[in-house]
């Protein structure tokens, strides 16, 4: 049970990273080599949902495991755990954020684009919390392979974030640049 919880945790970390990267790619409006844009979006969605499945597999066994001593309250409310409460708390916060992002994603047609987009931005807070939790809380978090993997994931997300903030990020950036910046203060809020 304990080992299973650890492995599923690491798998969900990888999936969450993939989801963040695909999300940034989808936001750019660009296809991925031969994969069309709508497939990138579907991939982003499906990998996120798969990450949620692995998060359930990560958390549920810990609830059942007598050694881990995690109860239902610890899963939702951060920083109350008995074992490394700080690092576990980061994971709890990340889990709550994942729940918010996924639920608003599933119901985005009802919530409207503004709520969806605002909550979706929380993904950028969720990911570093989840990574810190993986490294700090894991029993083998400081082992060489895990640290190496964490560095790789970190570099990938940082590179994607830098690309996201660059001027040429959007597929249409070059053709739209001639339109200039907002000329009136009351434009798109």
């Amino acid at each position: 049970m304990w080992a299973f919880g650890r492995v599923s945790g690491l798998v969900s970390m990888v999936l969450l990273t993939a989801s963040v990267l695909l999300g940034i790619l989808a936001r750019s409006g660009r296809p991925l080599l031969v994969i069309p844009r709508f497939s990138v979006t579907l991939l982003h969605r499906n990998i996120s949902l798969l990450a949620v499945v692995f998060l359930v597999l990560h958390v549920a066994p810990l609830l059942l495991d007598s050694y881990a001593r995690v109860n239902v309250v610890d899963v939702v409310v951060p920083f109350l755990g008995s074992y490394k409460p700080f690092w576990q708390g980061l994971g709890t916060v990340a889990l709550d954020l994942v729940a918010a992002v996924v639920l608003t994603g599933v119901f985005r047609h009802r919530l409207g684009p503004r709520t969806f987009r605002t909550v979706h931005w929380l993904s950028y807070a969720m990911w570093p919390l989840a990574l810190a939790h993986s490294v700090g809380n894991g029993t083998d978090g400081t082992s060489a392979p895990v640290v190496a993997a964490a560095v790789v994931l970190c570099v990938a997300v940082l590179a994607a974030a830098a690309w996201r903030m660059s001027a040429g990020f959007l597929e249409t950036a070059a053709v739209r640049r001639s339109g200039g910046n907002a000329r009136k203060g009351w434009g798109r809020p």
Binding site: G29, P31, P36, R37, F38, P113, E171, T172, V175, R176
Partner: peptide, 23 residues
């Protein structure tokens, strides 16, 4: 007022939609 020209619809409906100068 919502459209940002991300191009998914034009991919899904290639017979019905193309994209303009700005996507």
């Amino acid at each position: 007022t919502r459209c940002d020209g991300r191009g998914l619809c034009a991919e899904l409906l290639p017979e019905a939609l193309t994209r303009d100068d700005w996507g």
